[in-house]
Amino acid sequence: MIETLRFWAIVVLLGLGVLFTFVSTVGVIRLPDVYSRAHTASQTDTLGAGFALAGVAVAFGWQHAAVYTVLLLFFVFITNPTAAHAISRSAAETGVEPILAAEGEDGNETEGDAETDGESR
């Protein structure tokens, strides 16, 4: 009974990890600029790796390997948002411009940009 429960808990945790990593991979491949990609790439670090490593920790049970896994999970949780922040900041400081809503096809800010363009000319 408890083995069956543990088996299905592991299957659900690993399935959620694979699902969030899949969503993040699709986002990194298809989103338009660096900042939106950084937003969806840190999702694989927190949710995808978090669920998968939690599944591994449940599988190991009460032994020292589970302590290693929880330590790894804690470390991934701390370091990867920091790394994503550093990458985004270096993109901002080297002059990569974000794609804003004003450059889109509609919205009030497009009219505002058109007015300032007219004044500058």
Binding site: V28, V34, A38, A41, D45, A49, N80, A83, A84, I87
Partner: peptide, 8 residues
């Protein structure tokens, strides 16, 4: 960013 996600 892609290499960082690959490492994770």
């Amino acid at each position: 960013l892609a290499v960082n996600v690959l490492g994770t």
